[in-house]
């Protein structure tokens, strides 16, 4: 996976930081599920909790959503 300057994977975003979703590199099923919970390219996210191991919590479109680390690693974001 090639990341540009400004891009990073969601699992590396620190708690409290705001980011914008750029793209997904997971499977179709995962993308569908993410989209129905508000994760689409361009959506703003705030990292609520990320201890850099284990699952994490993000705030997206008014909802707190828990993501596994593996799932978060497949979401590419931009600093907002």
């Amino acid at each position: 996976m090639q990341l540009n300057n400004n891009e990073m994977i969601l699992s590396e975003v620190k708690a409290g930081d705001d980011v914008v979703i750029r793209s997904f590199c997971g499977g179709v099923r995962m993308n569908h599920r993410l989209a129905s919970l508000g994760f689409t390219p361009g959506a703003r996210l705030r990292m609520v909790q990320n201890f850099m191991h284990g699952p994490l919590i993000v705030f997206v479109r008014g909802t707190r959503v828990a993501l596994g680390r593996g799932e978060a690693a497949r979401i590419i974001v931009n600093r907002g």
Partner: peptide, 10 residues
């Protein structure tokens, strides 16, 4: 095999 962990925290 693993399913993805995506869960709302209400």
């Amino acid at each position: 095999q693993r399913s993805s962990f995506i869960m709302e925290i209400p």
